[in-house]
Design a protein around this nucleic acid. Structure first.
Lengths: 183, 183
DNA sequence: GTAGCACGTTTATTTTTTTAAACAAGAGGC
DNA sequence: GCCTCTTGTTTAAAAAAATAAACGTGCTAC
């Protein structure tokens, strides 16, 4: 991330999509000069400008930046090298490595008391399973519901609506796996 | 990605890290007004400005943008309902549910002191990953070798020869996942 | 060879963002 | 009440980026 060369990266993705500066500029609705200056790192685009340009490719920002943060042939991970996927604060989903690349998403999930993946049940086109490491969590899968305790586990088809809810007053840790990755 | 609200997202991550605008500004080396304006979407930061701000959190760009991207049904299992796959006695592989059916093999692995998957390294046509729950184990993947301790994790392509070896004098527990199942 | 065309680059002007500093609102302390 | 500290917000001046249009280069057709 530190020595990320934005200009070079843009040039790379543009070139991979076989677009000239002018053609990309036309598709993105910007001027070709802008793209030239950015690729030469002679100016530093705003996020909205970069997004606009990437829409002409098209590519999204997270993919644009994805190469740098999580080097791909990395095998071993320390706890602080896991990537946080959750946005809510009483719930943490830490992902091991580049799940997309390996088609296997391993998560260290922490549910604080009250944490809930939501009444609007989750659904995605994967299968998932996991094991409770500590605490307990109420898991609903379709019409089945159960409180899982330490050492208990689950495995199901994620197209079935499901929900995790920590109804206890202790945090709960779960190690889960999902294939293909659901994000 | 389309309706991504950059200001709101910055406010969210700043708030999750319990930083005031001023404190984040100080850490990032920018002015607090800048952060205020960005969070209110009253201006559109350059990528380098956003990166600078995120370094004060710290968080990297790909994580910042990551949120947007992208029947006879036994679901729950008690510990004693897991199936033992290992035949060796200082090594236990407990499988969650019908791995083949779901194309996802989740194992609770226990390596007693000295336990070793063998000098004849393992190879199978899958990807696998896992997290160390307790103890430590030496993992070799191709030409990389490392002792993984509690909380550390791994993810790799299982066609690369690999080996688990508990070189310590304490048992080691690992939760692992593999797709497709290797047995 | 030279006319036409597509390419990336550069430059003067306009537009936008950053800064620095002031402002307003709320929470304690005394 | 009043003072002080911290919070987020706003504003004029300074800095930086986007535009539009020109420039230079290399290629192909004729």
């Amino acid at each position: 991330m530190d020595d990320f060369d934005l200009g070079q990266r843009l040039r790379q993705v543009r070139s991979e999509h076989k677009l000239s500066q002018r053609e990309l500029a036309r598709r993105a609705g910007v001027t070709n000069g802008t793209i030239s200056l950015i690729e030469k790192n002679q100016n530093s685009p705003s996020v909205s400008m970069l997004r606009k340009i990437l829409e002409g490719i098209p590519m999204d920002l997270s993919d644009f930046f994805a190469t740098e943060a999580h080097p791909n042939d990395k095998v071993f991970f320390k706890p602080d090298e896991l990537r946080e996927l959750s946005t809510s604060k009483n719930l943490s989903f830490l992902q091991v490595g580049d799940a997309k690349r390996y088609n296997l998403q391993i998560l260290c999930e922490t549910y604080e008391p009250g944490a809930d993946t939501g009444k609007t049940m989750l659904r995605h086109n994967s299968t998932e399973g996991g094991i409770v490491i500590s605490g307990c969590v109420e898991l609903t899968v379709g019409d089945q519901k159960r409180v899982l305790r330490k050492g208990e586990s689950y495995l199901f088809d994620s197209t079935v609506p499901h929900r995790f809810h920590n109804t206890s007053n202790e945090p709960c840790e779960v190690i889960s796996a999902c294939t293909p990755p659901y994000i």
